[in-house]
């Protein structure tokens, strides 16, 4: 993905000032209307009745529990995908094996399947009326309408992020450096920690940041398996919807502003990492 972009960046010549001005204006207007204005509205409404009203939102136990659950889901999903992503990218990027294409397609599946469908499959699998439902009920395991379901749904929708970021980097670097480490007497684990990991650290961090943003912001899949049990199975995005439907605009937008802040922070970290990667690329 990254490589082809570089190839196409031929110098643009000959466009008149009028055309350039028009193109820039279209981009600016589009971004303003669809991105900047909504972002401004979120903060405006959240702070519309004063700072005190804004902060009182966060004394509501249900809201606090939603924030907590979102953090827990992300805390499980991100490390899980970190490990899976590294393992999958390592296997795909450095080895030839039967079923490689299928593995790549599977990793991309969550991108192509609607999150709602993903949530529904979990309900059909683990729900009380589902395939494994009776067995789970008999053993007193609650997945759907409980925290494990939320975590499962979050893991599912975030699966591609780390692996997808690492794959091009690992494939481009090949396995010569690892082979060199082996000939110098390093073991498999030493080779991974000292050679492979340092070479992909920025791509890895980039994947983790994106994965985290998606884990915290996921709505569709989580909504299906949550059951909206206030104070128990609501994440931040679900809590925002509930508050909004209750006409509690200030609290709804206050929680939304938290997610927006997360998005902005992600954007900053992402830009810094991209800048580092570009600088690194230029040196090599």
């Amino acid at each position: 993905m990254v490589g082809t972009l570089h190839l196409r960046s031929a110098p643009a010549v000959g466009e008149s000032r009028l055309i350039r001005g028009t193109l820039i204006a279209i981009a600016v207007v589009f971004l303003s209307v669809f991105l900047l204005a909504p972002l401004a509205v979120v903060f405006a409404v959240a702070l519309g009745q004063g700072v005190a009203a804004f902060f009182s939102t966060f004394s509501n136990p249900d809201t606090l529990s939603a924030i907590w659950l979102t953090l827990v889901a992300a805390a499980v999903a991100v490390p899980a995908n970190l490990i899976f992503g590294i393992a999958a990218a390592w296997a795909i990027g450095k080895f030839q094996f039967v079923g490689k294409g299928i593995l790549i397609a599977l990793i991309d599946l969550p991108f192509s399947v609607s999150p709602v469908v993903a949530g529904l499959t979990y309900v059909l699998l683990f729900g009380a009326q589902g395939l494994l439902g009776p067995w789970l009920v008999a053993h007193n395991v609650h997945i759907i309408f409980a925290v494990p379901g939320i975590i499962l749904a979050t893991v599912f929708v975030t699966v591609p992020f780390v692996a997808r970021e690492l794959l091009p980097t690992m494939a481009a670097q090949g396995s010569e450096e690892e082979e060199a480490a082996l000939t110098l007497g390093a073991g498999g684990w030493q080779t991974f920690l000292r050679v492979t990991l340092p070479n992909v650290k920025w791509a890895l961090l980039y994947g983790v940041i994106l994965c985290n943003a998606r884990a915290m912001g996921e709505f569709g899949a989580v909504a299906v398996v949550s059951g909206h049990v206030a104070g128990l199975t609501n994440t931040m995005p679900l809590q925002i919807e509930i508050l909004y439907n209750d006409y509690q605009f200030v609290p709804a937008f206050a929680v939304a502003s938290l997610l927006a802040l997360l998005a902005l922070a992600t954007l900053v970290v992402k830009s810094v990492i991209e800048w580092r990667i570009a600088r690194r690329g230029a040196r090599v």
Binding site: E176, E177, E179, A180, A181, L182, T183, G185, G187, R194
Partner: peptide
């Protein structure tokens, strides 16, 4: 590879 204790110089050097 490690047990053989060979020094290998790669075509494109493969420096870390």
């Amino acid at each position: 590879v490690a047990q053989r204790r060979v020094g290998f110089v790669f075509q494109h050097y493969a420096l870390f």
